[in-house]
């Protein structure tokens, strides 16, 4: 099923749910005002549901808006969003009975930076999706680009494109993965020596302006007061010094340990194009290797950081 047909299905489902009063709000995506940036949209009435859409540019993670939200809601969920919803149910931040999941198979979202990089210095005014190709239009040009070439890396290595939980599945199930091997790319610095790792780490995060967009876009970050905003005590300095930036990114990644579903919302939200998944992917790889756990795959699963086994690895303790 193509995206236009799925979008129609989502709109119909949303109108039905809102019309029957089954939910107070349908959280989905609407077409952005600039190309390749479809944004989260809250439909409270059947009329507003007309604005809902579905495309390869739905990069935000909608599970974020379900956190501690009062009332009943429906959420449009592809694989990663549904995994985060499962995680939130398991962490008691969302009640399953208040949640209606409109499941969709993810086509693999497009990295707008990769598309822009193919047209340096040119303004893209419209991007159309036709099957496995994108038609990129701008002033005086219209070119075809293979979708696979511009897909987000996390979508390429995704293993769960179908929703884990769904009350209604629009468009049916599709392939579960794109064929990328996550373990091959999960820890790109592992083969380097310590000094090169540090250099790579500094290089990757040098553009950070500490805007916290990665944190705000992340469906795992729901503390009432984040550790970076606390001033008594101040855990993390506020400057753009490399030590403060490194502290923020290491701790942000560590807080996601055993919970991150690799949805890529942080990287898509970053205004500086920082690849913070280089840290979170490494942690999730460790969690898989050490404790055999994948976050968000089953309701009722215990997060690995809240458990222990007597025979957990402990070679590092003297």
């Amino acid at each position: 099923m193509d995206n236009a047909a799925i979008a129609k299905g989502i709109r119909e489902a949303a109108k039905k749910l809102l019309g029957e009063g089954k939910v107070d709000v349908v959280i989905g995506y609407a077409k952005g005002t600039v190309p390749m940036r479809d944004y989260p949209y809250f439909a409270y009435t059947p009329e507003e549901a007309e604005n809902l859409t579905w495309s390869g540019f739905c990069c935000n993670n909608l599970a974020l808006y379900a956190i501690r939200r009062p009332g009943r809601m429906a959420v449009v969920a592809q694989g990663c969003v549904s995994r985060n919803l499962v995680g939130l149910v398991n962490e008691n931040q969302v009640k399953r009975e208040n949640l209606y999941v409109i499941g969709v198979n993810s086509p693999g979202m497009v990295d707008r930076r990769k598309v822009q990089a193919l047209f340096p210095g040119q303004t893209i005014t419209e991007v159309e999706e036709v099957g496995d190709e994108l038609i990129v239009k701008g002033v005086g040009f219209a070119e075809k680009v293979a979708r696979k070439k511009v897909m987000r890396q996390n979508c390429y290595t995704c293993v769960q494109r179908n929703p884990v939980i769904s009350d209604e599945l629009i468009g049916g199930e599709g392939p579960a993965s794109h064929g990328g091997n996550l373990d091959k790319v999960a820890a790109p610095w592992e083969k380097l020596g310590s000094s090169e790792r540090w250099a790579e780490f500094q290089e990757s995060f040098k553009d950070c302006i500490r805007c916290y967009a990665c944190r705000d876009a992340c469906p795992l970050c729901y503390c009432h007061v984040c550790f970076v905003d606390e001033s008594q005590p101040q855990w993390c300095g506020k400057t753009q010094d490399e030590a403060d930036v490194a502290t923020f990114h290491l701790l942000r990644a560590f807080h996601c340990a055993g919970r991150c579903t690799d949805c890529g919302a942080c990287e898509s939200a970053c205004p500086a194009g920082i690849k913070m998944r280089r840290l979170t992917m490494k942690i999730e790889k460790d969690i898989r290797d050490l404790y055999g756990y994948q976050p968000g795959m089953a309701i009722g699963a215990q997060p690995p950081m809240t458990l222990f086994k007597p025979n957990d690895p402990q070679d590092f303790i003297k």
């Binding site: 610095w189 592992e190 942690i283």
Partner: peptide, 22 residues
């Protein structure tokens, strides 16, 4: 016992990011 898991992950992360082993 919970700390053991957290330290295991934290140590791996810090050394992965380039903190010297040791």
């Amino acid at each position: 016992m919970f700390a053991r898991r957290r330290f295991a992950v934290l140590k791996n992360l810090l050394e992965y990011a380039g903190l010297e082993p040791g």
